[in-house]
Design a binder for these strands. Sequence first.
DNA 1: TATGAATGAGGGTTCATTCAT
DNA 2: CATGAATGAACCCTCATTCAT
Lengths: 218, 218, 218, 218
Amino acid sequence: MTSETPRRRLAPEVRRRQVLDAAVAVFSEEGFHGASMDAVAARAGVSKPLVYARGGSKEELFAACLRREADRLLRSVQSAAGSGDDDPVARLRRGLRAFFHALTTRREGWTVLWRQASTGPFAGEVDALRRQIVGEAADLMAGGLGVPRAVALPYAHTLVGAAEGLADWWLTSEDQETVGGTEPADALADLLVAVVGPGLAAIGGRSLGSSTAVSPER
Amino acid sequence: MTSETPRRRLAPEVRRRQVLDAAVAVFSEEGFHGASMDAVAARAGVSKPLVYARGGSKEELFAACLRREADRLLRSVQSAAGSGDDDPVARLRRGLRAFFHALTTRREGWTVLWRQASTGPFAGEVDALRRQIVGEAADLMAGGLGVPRAVALPYAHTLVGAAEGLADWWLTSEDQETVGGTEPADALADLLVAVVGPGLAAIGGRSLGSSTAVSPER
Amino acid sequence: MTSETPRRRLAPEVRRRQVLDAAVAVFSEEGFHGASMDAVAARAGVSKPLVYARGGSKEELFAACLRREADRLLRSVQSAAGSGDDDPVARLRRGLRAFFHALTTRREGWTVLWRQASTGPFAGEVDALRRQIVGEAADLMAGGLGVPRAVALPYAHTLVGAAEGLADWWLTSEDQETVGGTEPADALADLLVAVVGPGLAAIGGRSLGSSTAVSPER
Amino acid sequence: MTSETPRRRLAPEVRRRQVLDAAVAVFSEEGFHGASMDAVAARAGVSKPLVYARGGSKEELFAACLRREADRLLRSVQSAAGSGDDDPVARLRRGLRAFFHALTTRREGWTVLWRQASTGPFAGEVDALRRQIVGEAADLMAGGLGVPRAVALPYAHTLVGAAEGLADWWLTSEDQETVGGTEPADALADLLVAVVGPGLAAIGGRSLGSSTAVSPER
DNA sequence: TATGAATGAGGGTTCATTCAT
DNA sequence: CATGAATGAACCCTCATTCAT
């Protein structure tokens, strides 16, 4: 006989994490409609009823994925940007670095959040989460540029899109060594700041991304 | 038999265009997996077998939508950028404007291309199309910046991503009046140039998006 | 190769009748919850999607069975009893004969109506249909006995139960020849009239099922 | 480990009674197929494995319910009818009263027995139980009418069916006050005797349910 | 030709039943 | 002993696809 994995009994929250991880992976690959609960169960290495027991219905499961990934991303960016009294520009840069770090290390969660479910039963919820995330960037930028939040909003969307495009290129390009010796996420963030920094500075009339932008702080 | 008015026999190309139009609409709203061939047939006002006769299988139909919309986008950007011998910066700007024009006027096609097909069985094809578009931008930028194409590539990805983010914001924001009196697509393109122009200029050491960038040419 | 039945194209109402017949058979044997749409499809000799196309969801299918069988039974009894001006007693007897005929020839429909779905999502509808049917008997009895309808109601229920018990015995007993040469349903009806006629007559103070009751009219 | 109050360990028979009681309640409400073992466990206030430990599989549990309720009904009717040497008519009347008493006071058991189990995998078992009860009635009637048992059988089926119909009406009718001041079960039994007594008497040629039938003994 | 009719296959969900603690 | 955790099997329903008219 084959050495089958025995039926392990695990704590509910452990199983739930397993199920959510698998669900994020599958949803990010196939989308909400394209993903099957069978695939989620197989990816998690559990039976389908267990997926339902720990994750609820397909819609509930997807919503849980959305919320978890959005929370993680928001928390990570917020904690990196800090709420301290230091320079808004520094805070923005730290936030960007954290954002890139999340993009490149948790690509699946980002895909679920951003590219999936823009239509369907979750359009509203997804849109709200997106607004929260971009709003965070807009807040930082409004502080850094000294402009009202409403003005900063399109720039924030532009920034997030640019980051996504850059991350996509980074993740799909084969020779990922070209960026340099530093932490990739940091290098990407610095590249982005180099691209958009001067323009934003000119818009805000302040020194965002000054000459120091291209030689990022350590 | 009764003498009912038979369905008008139309030329095959006309029928195919009807079917593709309906398919783009339905796919953009529901996604590949969420859309049903019944919905496509209903939207086109024809029977289901006709959809198969003119559009092929669901995958073929989706691929045809993808290619048609991508072709339109590419052609429009290329024809706007021109192959003339004039200023690469002006060509880039014209290309960007055409890009935004296509995004904002053919939203459904854009949605099908970018948001619905970026995952699932068409990720590869979408990626290829995307590389074509980005490659176009990279060529323009390589010319404008005076750098090798390989160096321009990440910047091109960043630029296209930024354009996507900005277009997404524009398409989903409710108060679309805030941008200004000019043609929206042009205003968006100019905004983007204002953001990334100075940074790219500094990188390339040339005058791409100089001070005139923020006061766009007419 | 085996001589498989070819895929026949039939008119929708013909298929619907097939599906309803199969559904009545399966529901009467297994009950609403116990019946599976697979079993209905198999019994009808069609595929499952066709059951849905012609019969709707399981609940709709069951409700359609209910209504069809109730209509048939009601119509049959009403048309037998007539609305003429003749003797109420004769009308009651004719109604009973029709009722027994329906019981013994369409047992499945009766089972669906009477024994199934007394609980569940159809309790209300089933109860209403039951009340209609018993109400018909109560009306006839009220006319025959010269008592108010409300008084006749328990007797009607008693009569219907007695008929069911008698029919059950008849249908499950092996030597069904013992009843006699007449039409079985008529013989059963006459037997029932012989049992309950005198008692009901005494209650109503009229001649329902007088001495002629045991020698039924031809 | 924490010192939680452990579930009280009860004697096996006590647990089994709990489980059977819950099962009868749930089965009577939902039917065999509609009831879930989860519902039984919840109603009994125990865990599901305990239901299996004390009640066996779902089919065994249902069969046990069936047998317990049938035994109670049979025993009650037999003990009421007695085996004494007194008047068969009086014995029949007492048996009927006990029958109605059981029906009206143990409605759930009756529902399980008759309405839920008359079809499905237990039709055979229910039929056997029904034959036992009807056979009891047939014996009494054979004695009372002075006819062979085989002749009395259809009348017994008719009688039991009538009793069921009357009991169903009584149990589902809302204005249960219309019957009178006496014990409902007795009133129902007397009503039934008034309906079928004279007819049976005429058939048997003896005094079963003579004029005294309509003014029942106390 | 254009279509209504038909189906094989698969997805979401639940349930009876059994381990491992 | 008593339980929460886990699963194989089945059920309802829909969809992409294809005939027969």
